[in-house]
Amino acid sequence: MRIATLLLASLAAANPANPIWASELPKLSFQHHDWELACDNTRTCRAAGYHAEEGRNRPLSVLLERRAGPSQAFDVKLRLGDADDGIDLPATLAMQVDGRALGTVELKGEESIGSLSASQAQALLRAVAGAGKVSWRAGGLTWSLSGKGASAVLLKMDEFQGRLGTPGAAMRKGGRPEQDVLPPLPAPVVTAASVPAGELAPLGKEEERILLATLRKTAGNEDCGDLEAIATGESKFAYAPLTSTTMLVSARCWRGAYNEGHGYWVANRKPPFAPALVTQSGTDYDKGVIGASHKGRGIGDCWGHDEWVWDGRRFVHTASGTTGMCRGIAAGGGWSLPTLVSRRPAAGAK
């Protein structure tokens, strides 16, 4: 239950070290039956639909991406589950809506992803918004898309992007001017600061005792149960330099069946340490970047990801998202469904 909660909440979306930066940005995550929605802070939305989970349906997923702003069309992609009874995935699929032929979809690349034409995308939208049946066929096999939950997800997307009542709305079309649709927002630019290489030597026993006691008393660390393992010697702190006076302290906070989360704190190198929590769900750190990556279930077909970047003063939450539902689409997940995105200038850029 803990991992599922983390995944649905985009893991560490609440970042005590910089709460205002992330919390004031518009974003949305929503799931209903066989469909889900992720809208990021630029107001781009991505809806993913899947095969019906009940019954013996071949795994597939569609991704409907729509950027913010007036007169934006849907970009619709199709992906078949790559672990489907050990069959070789076809290169071309025949598309049908309510039994009516709608041309073919070519699957390309190592991931075998197909792009729907504008007319195919519109037919799919009309079908799943109502009670239509959408399927693809090849080699005597059929892959069927569930429409259960689609109308609720598309309605949420329209609402988030300010499209309700406009001609371009997916669900509730109307005569409100298309120019009333909310505009796109720029992705925040985060400039990463350089950090010294390597790790810091462990603190002395007395300083480490003070640090541990401080962390135990600091609000927000109540869920870091494995801090107690530091005191017994079962676990250890790790230290990385950030500036000449500050460091990044890390320690395991919790462990599950196939995931674990580490706490990361920005602290002074000497007492008083004044630790500031970044996350309790981190999984790796490298050169000023903290990452968090967790499976939604043991076979690893669904993941949640987060990232924090050191800007010289604090760790900024720069990315958050999942790979979609646990539906057996692909090892590592079927899609990228971000709710938080940012831009980092290239090295040397001004």
Rank of each mutant, 00 (worst) to 15 (best):
V195S: 00
V153W: 00
R176D: 13
A330N: 06
Y258S: 15
W310M: 03
W310G: 02
V266S: 02
G198W: 09
I230G: 01
T214V: 11
S250D: 10
E234S: 09
M157G: 06
V128N: 06
T92Q: 13
P26C: 12
G149V: 07
K133S: 11
Y239S: 02
A129Q: 15
Q161A: 07
G130A: 12
R58L: 15
S61L: 10
Q72Y: 02
S29L: 05
C45G: 11
L154V: 04
V195T: 12
G103T: 04
N18C: 11
L203A: 08
N259A: 03
K133R: 13
N57V: 14
L7G: 06
V62G: 02
G304P: 07
G165R: 00
L125C: 03
K217P: 01
F237K: 00
L277W: 03
V341N: 05
G162P: 00
E222D: 15
G328I: 04
P202R: 03
A187S: 11
S23V: 05
N221R: 03
D40E: 12
S281V: 13
A257N: 12
P177D: 11
A170G: 14
F160A: 08
L93W: 13
R297C: 04
L215R: 02
A131W: 06
R163G: 06
L7Q: 09
L154N: 01
A150T: 08
A349N: 04
R344H: 12
V153I: 12
G168R: 08
W310H: 03
S151W: 01
T92C: 00
K217Q: 14
L182E: 11
G140T: 13
P186N: 07
L80V: 10
Q179S: 14
D75R: 09
A319D: 07
K77A: 15
T92W: 01
N41R: 04
N15M: 07
L145A: 02
V289M: 09
V134F: 05
R252Y: 09
C326W: 07
V195W: 01
V105N: 01
W35M: 03
N15F: 05
P272F: 14
A219I: 05
T166K: 07
G288K: 03
A276C: 05
C224I: 10
E234T: 05
D158N: 11
D75M: 05
R79L: 05
L78E: 09
I3D: 15
G324N: 12
M1Q: 15
R269W: 08
M1H: 12
F30H: 09
S112K: 14
P196L: 08
K295Q: 14
G198H: 08
R343M: 10
D223I: 08
E36S: 09
G130S: 15
D284E: 12
R163P: 03
E206M: 10
R209E: 15
L242I: 09
L63N: 06
F74H: 08
G109L: 06
